[in-house]
């Protein structure tokens, strides 16, 4: 196993960890707003790490650029979606959960 393969494995595992964390947070957090936190942050990071591993494995700058582009679009859509969902919820008078 080359050094690049080893680094890719580490990056993949980190990505899988953050995807799992995002999903666990999504299931366990108490309300819509806190769940959006879990999705936007952990999932972007999950894809960031897995994308970095794939870019390393591709061995091509153009393919790496394509993965970077996908990551950027993913971040834009994730944050835009969460803003729209949260705003829709607030305007429909959904109260954020407070620690009792």
């Amino acid at each position: 196993m080359s050094a690049i393969d080893a680094i890719s494995v580490v990056l993949m595992l980190a990505g899988a960890f953050f995807f799992l964390a995002g999903t666990v947070g999504f299931l366990r957090f108490p309300d819509l707003f806190t769940r959006l936190h879990a999705l936007t942050k952990a999932d972007n990071l999950g894809f960031g790490f897995i994308g970095a591993a794939l870019a390393l494995q591709s061995g091509s700058w153009a393919v790496a650029g394509k993965i970077l582009l996908i990551w950027l679009l993913l971040m834009v859509s994730a944050s835009a979606c969460s803003l729209l969902v949260a705003r829709g919820a607030l305007r429909n008078r959904i109260e954020p959960w407070r620690k009792p």
Binding site: L36, H37, T40, A78, S79, A80, S82, L83, R87, A89
Partner: peptide, 12 residues
């Protein structure tokens, strides 16, 4: 948008 991607904060 960036507020939502940083620790602990979400723009609503």
């Amino acid at each position: 948008h960036v507020i939502s991607l940083l620790p602990g904060t979400l723009s609503t």
